[in-house]
Amino acid sequence: MIRTRENIYKWIFTVLAFSSLIFLLGIIVVLFVESIPVFRSTGLFKFLFSRNWYPTNEANPEFGILSMLVGSFVVTIGAMLVAIPLGIGSALYIHELAGDKQKMYLKNIVEVLGAVPSIVFGFFGMVIISPFIQQLLKIPTGQCAFTGAVVLGIMAIPTVCSIAEDALSVVPKAFREASFALGANRWQTLWGVVIPAAGSGISTALMLGISRVVGETMTVLMVTGGAAAIPNSIFSPVRPMTSTIAAEMGEAVVGGQHYHALFAIGFVLFVITLVLNLVAEIISRRYRLKLGLDL
């Protein structure tokens, strides 16, 4: 009697636990199925590499997302140029220079800042940073790839910083002590021993930071301008993939080609972030194995 009940509970838990797997598969299936009509009519190659995006042209709509891919790429690279030095620099400070109490406060502050919603960053970028950059650089519009990169970069700092700090903190103390024993000073130890040892953990932080920036929607929607064209400089407006979906879904007719094309963008976006996350996970697993830690 008790046996049966125990088994029933175990079964219920097993079945429900796999719901996450079902959701992930569900997302893949839904995105794929909703994208098929566009892949079929436009062709995957033309969809990815044509720069003509005229979704609402009734006679001859065209769906090419090259300019959005370029837009996402430019903004992401720019954002990482901001987030990597500041995020990793802050992590190194917290790890190496902060005292115990300061360390605890700084880590918690970084974590709290990581919880600031992206809409707040987007709003701040739109009303403060973008006019500021426009005046500072005397450019026609402050809503451009550069502003997007700056705002997204600031937003990604807490993510990069806290993951990098985790990676640094699991480097065994013995590594440092061995380095000091050989006469190295703190900086030499940090640069020559601790950072290389934490290297793959830090690259995990970068991957997850990139993944967060690529998938970020509201911020880019509000600060990058939104011209669906390949930018000719970093001060041109761009429209990354995420903001195209968010901006155009409201006007797309459900079940129409435009609707399916937006799902297809979502599918491409999903594949990109999935690859980044898988790479991050593989690196971090290897790293933990190397240091002899539990998975």
Binding site: L21, E34, G215, F270, L274
Partner: peptide, 24 residues
Amino acid sequence: ILRMSINNLAGVPSVVFGLFGLAV
């Protein structure tokens, strides 16, 4: 695989969840 899919679900862009919610 379940653990990996949980990790990956955490990395799915929020707008993709929006598309999923819309379709489903």
